[in-house]
Design a protein around this nucleic acid. Structure first.
Ligand SMILES: [Zn+2]
Ligand SMILES: [Zn+2]
Ligand SMILES: [Zn+2]
Ligand SMILES: [Zn+2]
Lengths: 143, 143
DNA sequence: CCGATTATGATAATTATTCTCACGTGAAAA
DNA sequence: TTTTCACGTGAGAATAATTATCATAATCGG
């Protein structure tokens, strides 16, 4: 139950928090912006403030329930922190996001940080390119 | 001469552009924000508009003269595109930025993109951690 | 030097996010 | 249950970063 998740991290169980967590669970879109979360909830009849969405997301992130990513183009997305760590590759044409995990890269990062005298605490790796998905395949070389 | 650089990429040689390029050359700080560039120029007596700084930076980036990086904490920095590609490691405490290049990681990225059906065009890799520099060494565990 | 074109500075407008605050709610205690 | 009160919430104001507007000014080929 989502209520448990909230209690486990010391957050009161409130309707807005449950709605937001619930939305993120419905893997409809693993990566959502604060705005899209607000919009989806509002459009489905919920009465919620955008500020509440931002507040909840910040708390969830601090509690480790979700992760935030800054992609180019100014979009900041959030996703549930379920399963192991992974990084992203974003299609610069259609915006599709895929995930990947590469042990070699992860290990190298730690080595590099150590070599430079840093105590690695986090990292952000995002690849950008054109994908071959249905939304992109036919759009080559056109406006 | 910086004027050459501008002409080579098809940009008119203007005072603001020269001042900004010049500032970036004076490796005083390899990584600068639009605001810091504006401030330094203004404080040194130049009359320049912040909008002009943003415009010039965008044009320089489009022309490949400089590169832009989005770091956590909302800071967007620009740096001259001189020498080979590199990524960054940022100290989360003092903000110090170091650069590194790792062939293993660069190669893996390309392989990963290919495997996922993407035509890799760019990537952003930033490591975060605490450094052992002079500004940080003594600040452990204190506010 | 001249004029068409492009750039610039001041400032308004946008966008994304955070803050403020009066009011509402969760949950521990009575 | 009811009480209590710290904490959460919605609406909208306030910030911060970036972009757009526009009248004026500078660039540069002729
Ligand atoms: Zn990773
Ligand atoms: Zn993801
Ligand atoms: Zn790289
Ligand atoms: Zn440091």
């Amino acid at each position: 139950m989502e209520s448990e998740e909230l209690r486990n991290v010391g957050l009161k169980v409130t309707t807005p928090r449950l709605k937001i967590l619930g939305l993120l669970e419905k893997a409809t879109a693993r990566h959502m912006t604060a705005e899209s979360i607000y919009r989806q909830l509002t459009e489905s009849g919920e009465v919620i403030g955008l500020a509440t969405v931002y507040r909840a997301l910040a708390q969830f992130e601090a509690a480790g329930l979700i992760t935030r990513h800054h992609f180019e183009g100014g979009q900041t997305v959030y996703e549930l922190e379920r399963g192991p760590h992974h990084d992203h590759i974003v299609c610069v044409r259609c915006g599709r996001v895929e995930e990947f995990y590469d042990k070699v890269i992860e290990d190298r990062q730690r080595e590099i940080a150590t070599k430079l005298g840093f105590n690695l605490s986090d990292h952000a790796l995002t690849l950008y390119g054109e994908c071959s998905g249905p939304d992109c395949a036919g759009k080559k070389k056109q406006g």
